[in-house]
């Protein structure tokens, strides 16, 4: 499912992660997503990531531009491929797969 380079571990060391998390204010799902993501990042990507948290309520225009339907949503901009992770990120396994940190 995920097209991974066999020696992805090396690449990950070199390439820093750029992540965008789209949330809706302080809704329960959003709060959970933020805390879950922070935990995952601290655990697996320590000092190797840039996280931007965007409140779609504040910037509704972004919803159309980024094709947002479901919230909260985590967008992995880099390293490629771009991935979208929906939901409050409580399923750590899936998040790690989605971020390419773990083999499927």
């Amino acid at each position: 499912m995920v097209e991974q380079d066999p020696d992805y571990d090396n690449l990950d060391e070199q390439q820093s992660y750029i992540l965008r998390l789209f949330v809706t204010g302080a809704s329960p799902n959003s709060s959970r997503a933020i805390s879950n993501l922070k935990q995952i990042c601290e655990t697996y990507l320590k000092d190797n990531y840039e996280l931007e948290i965007i409140d779609v309520y504040q910037q509704p225009m972004i919803a159309e531009r980024e094709q947002i339907i479901v919230l909260p949503m985590l967008l992995k901009v880099s390293p490629s491929p771009e991935r979208r992770l929906m939901g409050d990120l409580s399923d750590t396994e899936k998040v790690l797969i989605g971020l390419g940190l773990k083999k499927y």
């Binding site: 789209f22 809704s27 959970r32 997503a33 879950n36 979208r84 929906m86 939901g87 409050d88 399923d91």
Partner: peptide
Amino acid sequence: EETGEYDLEG
């Protein structure tokens, strides 16, 4: 990838 609870607020 669905990773948990979500809604269609977007």
